[in-house]
Write a protein that binds this DNA or RNA. Structure first.
Lengths: 238, 238
DNA sequence: CTATTCTAATGGTTAAACCATTCGATAATC
DNA sequence: GATTATCGAATGGTTTAACCATTAGAATAG
């Protein structure tokens, strides 16, 4: 019924005032706040208390601090970074196993690719084909490091094709947390890289003929196959 | 290639050390950190700097502070609150629309219910039926407030049936952000409550006969129908 | 004109003190 | 003896004043 009453902490009041000003557009991205020594007078508080407020605002992703003369607190454009960070923290310390992550990833990538395929434009297909060709070149040169980077770019690009930021930042949070496992347990080699490449070609082909369900099925199978392989490796190494 | 070099801010180092200890389980939920005056000596820093670190940890949802004697920083059980809060900021600033949220919710609830149905035990079905009967009683008494609470409990319970915390975290993050809009634009009435109730009965029935795909389809249709109604209301009110 | 050095503005840190809240011990009261 | 009131100490919250570290731009040297 009721929310916890406002705690009587001065720095929280400062946080609220500045946050509201940013959300209401009274402070636009790029705007520089006055220096600490001036702000503290405006809010009629001490520098220590003001700085605690700035730390909170910084952590919320609302401002960033620059050093030196003409430095200070600058209003940031609000982006998904705090969501990604807090979701990542939840995953890392919330009793989440690799199996949990993989299971979720199969579903979310399936939904995401289906939506992306539905909304794919010719420009999107061309962009994906360009990335695919870069990946193919890496495959031929046995350049696994760059292959993985381009692979990630393809995933990210497909994320943008959904035109829905929620899918994008959930995808990023999962990817950021699952990637270290891949690096450790499933290093790329010629065979795996080719398998990866083939799957992506199939996805692009399905998108070309507007077969969203097929594209979705391929990515889900792809993620599942690689997750299973990794799980197998981990089980054997234990 | 490279990440931005670690800024030379003492409080960030303190944050990292405490955060790592929490993530690694060296500090369990409920553990009380030493008082500020002792911590500052342990980290060989000043109280002001230490307190800036505590503000960041507090904002990350890792600790909470209690006042008075035997007060201090207590390690929190990790939950979705920081994700909910940062997502709410993103929504309020216009980075994410209600349509984005609804579109994502349809997919995630679909996946979640499918998985839950696959793993449903007889005990789960009984628990859902008990909740369903409570909801039915509220319906008969025209008690919309409690109906909504039980409705949320049913969703949450189905989340636990996935046995996968990632689904539960994401479900809660989305739900908590979409709920206020439902309250504002789609107040419950006899007709809507019955529709809601009927959908849930169908889902339980599908789970009873182990038809996960059907359960998934019903919840997706359910979420879509209610989202569309709300969007319509919002459009008309603008 | 370029390169170097200096200067001052600004965030980062420290120290010491005092205020405010809370819990438990002690005392007063019934 | 049980209950209530009072008090004291531990702990977070705030303030002040000073100094350190970084940086942009001005002044200076070549």
């Amino acid at each position: 019924m009721f929310k916890k009453a406002k705690q009587s902490r001065v720095f929280q009041d400062v946080v609220e005032q500045i946050q509201d000003a940013i959300i209401n557009g009274k402070l636009s991205p790029g705007t520089k706040l006055p220096p600490e020594r001036e702000l503290k007078d405006r809010f009629n508080t001490s520098r220590g208390t003001l700085r605690e407020a700035l730390r909170v605002l910084e952590q919320k992703g609302l401002i960033e601090i620059k050093l030196g003369v003409s430095g200070g607190a600058i209003v940031k454009r609000i982006d998904a970074e705090p969501v990604v960070e807090s979701l990542a923290l939840l995953i890392r310390s919330g009793g989440v196993s690799l199996e949990h992550l993989a299971e979720f990833r199969i579903k979310i990538e399936g939904s995401l690719v289906e939506l992306a395929a539905t909304r794919a434009t010719k420009k999107d297909i061309k962009a994906l084909e360009a990335l695919f060709n870069q990946a193919k070149a890496c495959y031929k040169k046995n350049d696994w490091g760059n292959f993985l980077k381009i692979d990630e770019k393809m995933h990210t690009y497909i994320g943008t094709m959904t035109r829905n930021p929620v899918f994008q930042f959930v995808q990023k949070s999962i990817h950021d947390n699952i990637h270290p496992y891949y690096e450790e347990y499933l290093p790329m080699n010629k065979k795996r890289t080719l398998e990866n490449l083939t799957d992506f070609e199939k996805i692009i082909d399905a998108m070309k003929v507007n077969d969203a369900k097929a594209a979705s099925a391929i990515i889900m199978d792809h993620v599942k196959r690689f997750s299973d392989k990794m799980q197998e490796k981990i089980n054997r190494s234990n």
